[in-house]
Nucleic acid binder design. Structure first.
Length: 516
DNA sequence: AAACGAGACAACCGCATTACT
DNA sequence: TAGTAATGCGGTTGTCTCGTT
């Protein structure tokens, strides 16, 4: 009986064994390196290497494959390294040397519009590389901006900006948080972008004196595409404004409470807007919150532009009344701004955190932190949109002097109230500046946001307003914490008013009814 | 003259995206 | 359509230069 022949390994088995023994360990560790690190030179390039690379590419091109290029060119370099050296330094169309003032302005503008998308910014500056611009930003421009922001927020005259009732350390904390972080974060820069974009799209709100001028024809290749989220935001905002107009026409006799059925329609339309234009997730609660903002913006007594409402709003410039006005602003645009900024920040995905999904009234309740009576709130004009702002007599009188800011500096539970006394309404005059209407740096920073051309009352106030509003950070804490925080209680006490419990429960019941 | 630090710029690293099979 | 390689991109680190002590 012959022994059974020993089974010989097949070719496939052989390959598999080799693979497992030699290749798999590296695969298992992750992605294979793009080159043999041990035999590749790193560090600065020598003139000889530069010459080799330049000569090779000029004669042969890159061949569409940077990985194999170094060996073909006789260089002991990684393909990535070669690519970077060529793109950032050796390319013939590279512009070396310092940046011009014009280029600086372009970088500021584009960074405000699109953030640190260096490659996109570089595309707008011929001869400059993304690396170049990134370095220039990080070493020079950012510092300049920081300095200006710091001067703006921390070096201001005391009576121009009063933060109360915080104590001095809290005041400093606020200044630091807003001035050094808030103003320089992408939110502020995106705010500028948004402002500039709206300014461009709806110049009637911002540049009434320029309406007569013919609009310059824009070269499409020179325009910058806004981030998708911003586009969506603008889209939703326009829808929202339409809805507000519609409700105002109806006079909202029930105090702005829109019928649930109607809300469902609106929610549905908002959802479809987002679903159509984005594959990202969309939270229905967000829509409800936004819709609630819409209803909140319709005062109980009807149209905010009514003579009674406007009359009540006249000349409220004492600290107490300013604070009261702030509640109105919170009511009308505070929530809206928070929702907007959260929405913008989130990229439609902020509710990935289950804890954040839970308190559905978080955003709503932040609207009633203030200390005004419900009646006071209801009687004040809406200042949440450029349209309404321009049509309020407070503005016409040049006494749009109060704004609220939410402080997210440490525990997200403090509300800082900033009373900005613009005096004459923001007219850029030496005397006004000297009297505490803002330091030179403040005005210099304003120029970043203000519309082009000479500043007038409207454009200045709008720019300041926009700047302040959009620098509001996004609170992500529970409303209870904010509402019951010592600072909130203190605010309430110091102004002799009561928390708006009724409105609080109204908000809760309103939303719970809708969501259920 | 040496040490040190700050600023500017070049280069690298690793993740994300795109292209290709 | 899935898997993989190549490329793009932005944050970070490394290196050099120059001024100050």
């Amino acid at each position: 009986m012959q022994p059974l022949p020993t089974k010989q390994p097949s070719a496939a088995t052989f390959v598999a064994v080799i693979f497992l023994a030699l290749v798999a360990p590296f695969v298992a560790m992750g992605r294979a390196p793009c080159c043999d690190k041990a035999n590749v030179k790193k560090g600065p390039w020598s003139p000889e290497e530069d010459a080799k690379l330049k000569s090779f590419i000029e004669h042969n091109g890159t061949g569409g494959n940077w990985i194999t290029l170094p060996s073909k060119a006789g260089l002991k370099r990684c393909g990535k390294s070669c690519r970077l050296r060529w793109i950032n330094y050796l390319r013939p169309d590279i512009k070396h040397g310092s940046f011009t003032e014009e280029e600086e302005k372009t970088i500021y503008r584009l960074h405000a519009q699109i953030g640190s998308r260096w490659s996109l910014i570089a595309a707008q500056l011929p001869g400059r590389t993304d690396n170049d611009i990134k370095n220039y930003w990080n070493t020079r421009l950012k510092k300049k901006l920081l300095e200006r922001a710091s001067n703006m927020w921390c070096g201001r005259p005391h009576h121009s900006f009063q933060i109360y009732p915080m104590n001095q350390p809290a005041n400093d904390q606020m200044s630091n948080a807003v001035g050094r972080e808030g103003l320089l974060n992408s939110q502020f820069l995106h705010a500028q972008a948004y402002y500039q974009y709206v300014q461009q799209q709806q110049p009637q709100y911002y540049l009434p004196q320029q309406q007569q001028q013919p609009q310059p024809i824009q070269d499409p290749s020179q325009t910058v595409q806004l981030p998708t989220v911003l586009q969506h935001q603008l889209h939703m905002r326009s829808i929202k404004n339409e809805l507000v107009d519609e409700h105002q026409q109806q006079q909202a006799p029930t105090g702005g409470v829109v019928e649930s059925e109607r809300l469902r329609d609106i929610e549905s339309s908002l959802r479809s807007i987002v679903d159509e234009s984005s594959s990202r997730t969309f939270d229905a609660r967000r829509a409800f919150q936004r819709l609630h903002c819409l209803s909140n913006r319709l005062p109980a007594n009807g149209n905010p532009m009514s003579p009674a409402a406007v009359a009540t709003s006249h000349h409220n410039t004492s600290p107490t009344s300013s604070c009261s006005n702030l509640s109105s602003d919170r009511n009308s645009f505070g929530v809206q701004q928070i929702a907007d900024s959260a929405f913008s920040d989130s990229g439609y995905t902020m509710y990935e955190d289950p804890a954040a999904r839970e308190p559905s009234t978080t955003m709503l309740n932040t609207s009633i932190l203030g200390s005004a009576s419900q009646q006071q709130v209801a009687s004040l004009p809406d200042t949440s949109t450029p349209e309404s702002l321009l049509s309020t007599s407070r503005f016409e009188d040049g006494v749009f002097d109060d704004l609220s800011m939410y402080n997210r500096s440490q525990d997200l539970s403090e509300v800082a109230v900033v009373d900005r006394a613009l005096g004459t309404g923001g007219v850029k005059e030496e005397s006004h500046q000297a009297s505490g209407g803002g330091s030179a740096d403040w005005w210099a920073n304003m120029d970043l946001v203000a519309p082009p051309g000479p500043l007038n009352q409207k454009s200045t106030v709008l720019a300041a307003n926009s700047m302040m509003r959009w620098s509001i950070p996004t609170p992500r804490c529970g409303a209870e914490n904010i509402y019951n925080s010592p600072q909130a209680q203190l605010t309430s006490q110091s102004h002799g008013t009561q928390p708006l419990d009724g409105m609080n429960s109204y908000s809760d019941s309103f939303l719970s009814k809708l969501i259920s």
